[in-house]
Design a protein around this nucleic acid. Structure first.
Lengths: 225, 225
DNA sequence: AATCAAAATATTGTCGACAATATGAAGGAA
DNA sequence: TTCCTTCATATTGTCGACAATATTTTGATT
C-alpha cells in the first residue's frame, strides 16, 4: 500500500512517450525527421503497440505531425509558429502572474525572492554561461505558474507548451542576450506579486514575455539574411 | 490526386476518437463512468488496438483520466475546474480579440456584424430558446478566434478547451440568462474590432468572459444549497 | 456476523502476424 | 532522356491471442 507512485506501475507506452519527448526536445531525433515505427521499435526494444500509443500522445502535444497511412514526422519550428506560441504564452503567463498574486503563500513568495538572489550571484559568477540563465529563467517562470494554483493553466504551460519552447532553446542557445535586464524584469514582477498587485504583475509579465518574443523575431530575421 | 481530404483515408482510431468525443460531450457516455475497453470494442465493432489509441487522444484532451492497469474514466467537471477553464479562456480569448483587430479582413468584420444582426432577430423571434443562444454565442466567439489567425490559439481554444465547455453546457442548459445583455457586449466587442482597437477589444472580451464565469459560480452555489 | 486470505475472474497491457496502403524500382512508350 | 505504368517492397493499420495486473468472489477464521 506504499508503492502507489512507484515507477513499476508505469506502462511501456507511458515510459516510451516520456523518452521520446526527451529525445525530440534534445534534438536526438532531429526536427523534421520521420518517425519510423519499425526502427523505433527495434531501438527501444518494444513492440509497435505501445509505440503507437506513445506517438498518439506526442501528436496531442504537437511534437509530431501524423498523416494517416503515411506516418509521423517531428515538427519543425519556424519563426511564425514560435511567435504564435509566444503570443499564447504571453496571455497565459500574464494570467498566471495575476493569479499568483492572490494564491501564492507568503512563504512561496519569500522563496521566489531567494531564487532571484541566487540568480544574481550566478550571473556575477559565471558571466555569459547560457545554461544557468536558461535554467534560472525556467525556474522563475515555473514557480509563478505553479503559484497560480490553476491546474489547467499549470498543465497547459508546463506540460504542453513547455516542450516546444525547450525544443527551440536547444536549437538556438542565445536567447536571453541580456541576463541582467531579464533579472531586473524578474525583480519587478516579484515585487508586484509581493505587493499582491495582480493587475501590475500581469502587465509586467506580459511585457517581459513580449520582449523575449521580439528578440526571437530579430534572431530569425538575422538568420535569414 | 484529388482525394487527399477524402474520409476514406481516415483510420479507425481517428474516426473512433471523434465518435467518442461526441458521445462524451453529449453525455451518452456519462461523466465519471468507466471506459471499459471490451465493452466499447464490442459496441463499436473494432478491436482494442485502435480503441486504445483513441483513448490516448481523449486523455490528451483531458476528456478522460487514465490510471495504469486500472482503466480510464470520463472526467467529471466540478465548479473549481470550470472556473479554472474560464480563467484560461479569459486570457486566451482576450488575446484572440486583440489579434483579431490586426488580422481580420474588412470583409470578415462585416460578416461578423451581419452575424450579430441575425442573432438579434433570433432573440426577438424565439424568446428564451436556449439552443440558438448557445449556438449563436459559439458562432461569435468562434469567428473572433479564427480571426486571430494564430493557429496555435485556434487549436487550443477550438479543439481542446472547446469540448470541455460544451460538455458543461450540455449538462446545465441555462448559462446565458440574459441574451440581450450578452448581445450588447458582443456588439461592443465587434465595434472595437471594427475600429482596430486591440487594447479595448481585449479588455471587453475578457470582461465578457469573466461575467460568464461569475454566472457559473453563482449557478453552482445555488446548486449546492 | 465481520474480517481477512486466497483463489477465480475480468480487465488492462503487450506482442507477433496479417491486411491495407503508400513508397520506390523497373521497364516500356513518346 | 523524360514521363508514365506496373510491379515489388516497405510501412502503416488492424486484429486476435497471451501475459500481467487488478477486482471480485469465495471460504475460512475469529
Amino acid at each position: 500500500m506504499e508503492q502507489i507512485h512507484s515507477k513499476d506501475t508505469q506502462t511501456i507506452a507511458d515510459r516510451l512517450s516520456d523518452e521520446l519527448i526527451t529525445s525530440i526536445v534534445k534534438g536526438d531525433i532531429p526536427s523534421g525527421s520521420k518517425i519510423s515505427e519499425p526502427d523505433l521499435a527495434r531501438t527501444f526494444k518494444v513492440s509497435r503497440g505501445p509505440l503507437r500509443e506513445a506517438i498518439r500522445r506526442l501528436e496531442g502535444l504537437h511534437l509530431v505531425a501524423r498523416i494517416p497511412h503515411v506516418g509521423a514526422r517531428v515538427v519543425s519550428l519556424h519563426s511564425e509558429q514560435l511567435v504564435e506560441i509566444y503570443q499564447v504564452r504571453e496571455a497565459l503567463e500574464g494570467m498566471a502572474a495575476r493569479l499568483a498574486c492572490s494564491n501564492m503563500t507568503d512563504e512561496e513568495i519569500a522563496e521566489l525572492k531567494e531564487l532571484l538572489d541566487a540568480h544574481e550571484r550566478n550571473i556575477e559568477q559565471s558571466e555569459g554561461r547560457d545554461y544557468f540563465q536558461h535554467e534560472g529563467d525556467f525556474d522563475f517562470h515555473y514557480r509563478i505558474i505553479q503559484g497560480s494554483k490553476n491546474q489547467r493553466l499549470i498543465e497547459l504551460l508546463c506540460s504542453e507548451l513547455y516542450h516546444l519552447i525547450r525544443m527551440y532553446r536547444f536549437r538556438s542557445s542565445q536567447i536571453l542576450s541580456r541576463p541582467n535586464k531579464a533579472l531586473t524584469e524578474h525583480r519587478h514582477i516579484c515585487t508586484a506579486i509581493e505587493e499582491r498587485d495582480g493587475e501590475l504583475a500581469e502587465i509586467l509579465m506580459r511585457r517581459h514575455i513580449n520582449t523575449a518574443q521580439k528578440h526571437i523575431e530579430q534572431e530569425f530575421q538575422r538568420e535569414e539574411e
